[in-house]
């Protein structure tokens, strides 16, 4: 019997990427994707269900489709995208409802994978150079996104304790770069002058978007339990990152950034507070635990940046980053269910 997978956040980059990858896996029988927005890439056999951000209809879907695997990719990591109210709603309330549905009596769920972030460690002068999965963060979380992710993680832990029959994996991803994904860091590196904090040159770690999808599939495939850092090997000083990108840097004042943030935003530079912390202190995470389970990274930190730069230079050429695909229910229904469409096997 094949897997019956539910993917949250199908309309987001990660949800659709993952659904695409799962479609290629013959052992996956059913893929159901949830989101408010339609997926932005064509999908062959994934069923898209429109839902509100807090998944009130989730338990019905889990029951009706006999879902056995949930991949929770829909956690917002970028505070420039929406208001803190919305982030709380999506991250915390969404996760709460998801787990309520997964642990409802008679639930068929036996495997859950949550895509978290190394943002939960924060960035502080008291940090160790490498955070292990067990390290506690040095300072009380101040940033909204970090607080909401920590709350999410505590739900995940509670869920794992309450449901020992379900394999729960939590993956904490480091700074993601790649040809297709847009993050605040990628935007900062795409500016004509890359911002840096005056007098600071912290070390950064990166993980390639390909390795992110591979890590989730790896964990799903083996039904691995536990918390894992996912990040490429090696740490790079921010100045070197800018150098690989072939960019000059512009120093920002380490003091009073709050006052300047409005005019900076006017210039089109979005620097979320968690990125400012990172530009000051950086962050490294120990990636050995997942490697011990047999995972191999395709990209190191520096290879990730190198690959990102290559794509950055050609981005303008293929007509921008976004594809021209637009989800149309009728068209999708035609492709999936019409006997006229032949599926090459």
């Amino acid at each position: 019997m094949g897997k019956r997978v539910l993917v949250t956040g199908l309309g987001t980059f990660w949800g659709s990427r993952l659904a695409q990858a799962l479609e290629a896996d013959p052992t996956v029988e059913v893929i159901v994707g949830l989101d408010r927005n339609a997926p932005s890439i064509p999908l062959e056999r994934t069923e898209y269900v429109r839902s509100d951000e807090s998944y009130s209809i989730l338990s019905r879907i889990v029951k009706a489709a006999r879902i056995d695997t949930i991949v929770h990719t829909f956690l917002v990591m970028d505070s420039t995208q929406m208001s803190s109210r919305q982030i709380h709603e999506i991250n915390v309330i969404g996760t709460m409802n998801l787990f309520a549905a997964a642990s409802a009596p008679g639930s068929t769920v036996r495997n859950v994978v949550v895509k978290s972030s190394t943002l939960v460690y924060g960035a502080h002068p008291k940090d160790p150079v490498w955070f292990s999965e067990e390290s506690r963060r040095a300072a009380v979380p101040v940033q909204m996104v970090e607080r909401s992710l920590l709350e999410v993680e505590s739900y995940v832990r509670d869920f794992a304790v309450d449901n020992p029959q379900i394999a729960v994996a939590m993956l904490r991803f480091s700074n993601v770069l790649g040809p297709d994904i847009t993050t605040p860091l990628a935007k900062a590196l795409d500016l004509p002058l890359v911002p840096r904090m005056f007098g600071f040159d912290p070390r950064f770690q990166f993980v390639h978007e390909v390795d992110v999808v591979r890590a989730i599939l790896f964990v799903l495939d083996r039904e691995i339990q536990g918390t894992f850092n996912v990040a490429g090997d090696g740490l790079l000083p921010w100045s070197e990152v800018a150098a690989i990108c072939g960019k000059r840097t512009i120093p920002l004042s380490p003091w009073g950034l709050g006052v300047f943030s409005a005019p900076i935003r006017r210039l089109g530079i979005e620097l979320p507070p968690e990125l400012i912390d990172l530009l000051r202190h950086g962050r490294g995470v120990d990636n050995r635990r997942l490697k011990q389970r047999g995972f191999h990274y395709d990209y190191t930190s520096s290879a990730t940046v190198t690959d990102f730069v290559g794509s950055l230079r050609t981005r303008g050429l293929d007509g921008g980053n976004g594809s021209t695909y637009q989800y149309e229910r009728d068209v999708e229904q035609f492709f999936r269910h019409s006997p006229a469409v032949t599926h090459p096997d």
């Binding site: 790079l236 070197e240 190198t306």
Partner: peptide
């Protein structure tokens, strides 16, 4: 070299993990 089966790890500076 660091484990990089598919993509070479090229560093521009000699700053180690400790800075």
């Amino acid at each position: 070299k660091p484990e990089a089966p598919h993509h070479g790890d090229q560093r521009r500076s000699d700053v180690d993990e400790w800075g």
